[in-house]
Amino acid sequence: MHTQTLQKPLTVKEAIESRHSIRQYVQEPMPKEDLEEILRLTSLAPSAWNLQTWRIHAVTDPGLKEQLQEAAYGQKQVTLAPVVIVLASDMEDVLQNLEETLHPGLSPERKQSEAANLSAIFGGMSVEERGQWGLTQANIALGFMMLAARGLGYGSVPMLGFDQQKVRELLGLPEHAKFAAMLPIGRADQEGYPHHRHSLDRIVTYH
């Protein structure tokens, strides 16, 4: 059963069209039900072979947020938002637990075959190459997360301007983990800038 959110959810179209990067947030906590719904919707993002490479770190502790703000070169949105998500990718954890990603409807023989195939494919890559591949999948989840948040009436801003090594240390992440973004989420306390985007003629080529 889905939890009740603070307002009627936006349609996908409304969420896309009204999403802006928000850096000022209303100073109020986020209901746990809303946070869990955002994370649940994020977890439905697609990934190749269903590997689900993303690992989500939801930070609400004020002290830890202050440390994350310092690692983010003082950017105030980190402590102004009630929740800060650090979305990372961990391909080594995926490969060590492949059985978790295999569909339960598969026969034991098919599961064994799928696991052997994936092990062979990624075993031929370096840790860095696997990490970069996994990051492409986590970036899909990042898009889902921003739209899920906006759909429930929240603002966010994706950040990569932070000291990755410090964030690894603060959250206890392994060296091979890759970062999709740090994402403050909360009720907007300001309007975002109007969209300024290329025309379709500039970015689309029909074949």
Results as ranks from 00 to 15, higher is better:
residue 133 W to L: 09
residue 189 D to E: 11
residue 111 K to N: 03
residue 108 P to W: 10
residue 110 R to N: 11
residue 126 S to I: 06
residue 196 H to M: 14
residue 110 R to D: 14
residue 185 I to E: 08
residue 87 L to S: 01
residue 102 L to W: 10
residue 68 L to D: 00
residue 60 T to E: 15
residue 116 A to I: 00
residue 41 L to G: 07
residue 67 Q to D: 10
residue 81 A to N: 11
residue 120 A to P: 09
residue 81 A to M: 03
residue 168 R to F: 03
residue 22 I to Q: 00
residue 200 L to C: 10
residue 133 W to H: 02
residue 145 M to S: 05
residue 170 L to E: 01
residue 37 E to Y: 06
residue 34 D to R: 07
residue 202 R to F: 13
residue 29 P to A: 12
residue 123 G to C: 03
residue 35 L to Q: 01
residue 70 E to C: 00
residue 173 L to D: 04
residue 186 G to D: 02
residue 163 D to A: 10
residue 48 A to F: 04
residue 12 V to F: 15
residue 103 H to N: 14
residue 105 G to Q: 14
residue 80 L to H: 13
residue 155 G to W: 00
residue 43 S to R: 10
residue 16 I to K: 00
residue 33 E to P: 02
residue 31 P to E: 07
residue 184 P to V: 02
residue 64 L to Y: 04
residue 146 M to Y: 08
residue 184 P to M: 07
residue 109 E to K: 14
residue 142 L to K: 03
residue 41 L to R: 11
residue 59 V to F: 07
residue 69 Q to R: 15
residue 65 K to N: 10
residue 9 P to F: 03
residue 187 R to H: 15
residue 85 I to P: 00
residue 184 P to F: 06
residue 186 G to H: 04
residue 163 D to W: 07
residue 47 S to I: 05
residue 93 D to A: 14
residue 104 P to T: 08
residue 95 L to G: 08
residue 46 P to V: 01
residue 198 H to L: 15
residue 184 P to A: 06
residue 77 Q to G: 04
residue 87 L to K: 01
residue 97 N to C: 04
residue 27 Q to C: 09
residue 101 T to P: 01
residue 149 A to M: 00
residue 119 S to D: 05
residue 159 M to E: 04
residue 182 M to P: 09
residue 112 Q to H: 11
residue 87 L to R: 03
residue 108 P to V: 11
residue 198 H to P: 14
residue 171 L to V: 03
residue 154 Y to D: 00
residue 170 L to C: 04
residue 8 K to M: 13
residue 117 N to R: 13
residue 115 A to E: 15
residue 24 Q to V: 13
residue 124 G to Q: 12
residue 181 A to C: 10
residue 157 V to N: 15
residue 79 T to Q: 05
residue 154 Y to Q: 03
residue 50 N to P: 06
residue 121 I to V: 14
residue 170 L to M: 03
residue 96 Q to V: 05
residue 4 Q to L: 14
residue 109 E to D: 13
residue 133 W to D: 07
residue 172 G to N: 06
residue 63 G to M: 04
residue 181 A to M: 09
residue 15 A to T: 08
residue 104 P to K: 00
residue 137 Q to K: 10
residue 190 Q to N: 02
residue 182 M to C: 04
residue 122 F to I: 03
residue 151 G to A: 05
residue 79 T to I: 11
residue 36 E to G: 02
residue 60 T to S: 13
residue 101 T to R: 15
residue 65 K to C: 09
residue 199 S to Q: 14
residue 95 L to Y: 03
residue 95 L to S: 09
residue 193 Y to D: 12
residue 202 R to D: 15
residue 119 S to N: 07
residue 169 E to H: 13
residue 108 P to F: 01
residue 164 Q to D: 12
residue 56 I to M: 10
residue 193 Y to A: 15
residue 119 S to R: 12
residue 30 M to H: 06
residue 7 Q to W: 12
residue 29 P to Q: 11
residue 177 A to F: 09
residue 90 D to T: 05
residue 63 G to Q: 13
residue 161 G to E: 02
residue 144 F to Q: 09
residue 36 E to K: 11
residue 203 I to C: 06
residue 205 T to K: 05
residue 157 V to L: 11
